[in-house]
Amino acid sequence: MSTAVSERDSDEPMMEVNMTPLIDVMLVLLIMFIITIPVQTHAVKIDLPVPNPNQNNVDPEKNKVMINAAGVITWNGTPVDLAQLAVYLEQTKALPVEPELQVQPDPYARYFIVDNVMAVIKRSGVGKLGFVGNEQYARVF
């Protein structure tokens, strides 16, 4: 705070208003208004589909893992994440005859994602593995 030093008589009244109490009251009111405002929640209620446990996504003949340019991993056309992919690969190992696994990454897919998919496949111990769609790389590179 600064004070104005001026020459005045001691008998004259002070003409300046002290703003500190006004500012303090305004800040307290502002905080009270902020606290009392209800929290805005934007909720959209939707009914998500329930997965059918009887539906088997593992084909006993051959299964196809695709990775598109956006990095989406699909198992026989159904989008999956790496954990679901590992579960499906374990289900293929439980079959009496192991089905063939075909891997088809998009030429523009990120290498990091393809590498993670290949690591999951290697950890699962799949014996019949093949890459399909390799002819598409001839036109890209």
Rank of each mutant, 00 (worst) to 15 (best):
M1T: 14
M1E: 11
T3E: 11
E7Y: 15
R8A: 15
S10N: 13
D11T: 12
E12F: 11
P13E: 07
P13S: 06
M14I: 15
M15S: 13
M19P: 07
T20G: 07
T20W: 09
P21C: 00
L22P: 05
I23T: 13
I23F: 15
L27T: 13
V28C: 09
V28L: 06
L29S: 13
L30H: 14
I31Q: 03
M32F: 13
F33P: 04
I34N: 06
V39I: 14
Q40K: 15
T41R: 14
H42S: 15
A43M: 10
A43V: 15
V44P: 09
K45N: 12
I46H: 12
I46D: 13
L48K: 14
L48H: 11
N52C: 10
P53W: 01
N54G: 06
N56Q: 10
V58D: 00
D59P: 00
P60F: 03
K62M: 12
N63R: 02
N63K: 02
K64R: 11
K64L: 11
V65C: 05
V65S: 05
M66W: 09
N68S: 07
A69F: 04
A69H: 08
A70Y: 09
G71P: 02
G71T: 04
G71L: 03
V72C: 04
V72F: 11
I73T: 11
W75H: 08
N76M: 02
N76I: 02
T78M: 14
T78H: 06
P79G: 03
D81Q: 01
A83Y: 08
A83M: 04
Q84C: 04
Q84W: 09
L85K: 01
L85V: 03
L89D: 00
L89Q: 01
T92D: 00
T92E: 02
K93D: 02
L95T: 00
L95P: 01
E98V: 02
Q102S: 06
V103C: 03
V103E: 09
Q104F: 05
Q104H: 05
D106Y: 01
A109L: 00
F112K: 07
F112A: 11
V114F: 09
V114G: 07
V114Q: 09
D115M: 04
N116E: 08
V117F: 05
V117H: 05
A119Y: 06
A119H: 04
A119L: 08
V120R: 07
R123P: 03
S124K: 01
S124V: 00
G133I: 08
G133N: 05
N134E: 12
Y137P: 06
A138F: 13
R139A: 15
V140Y: 15
V140T: 14
V140P: 06
V140F: 14
F141P: 10
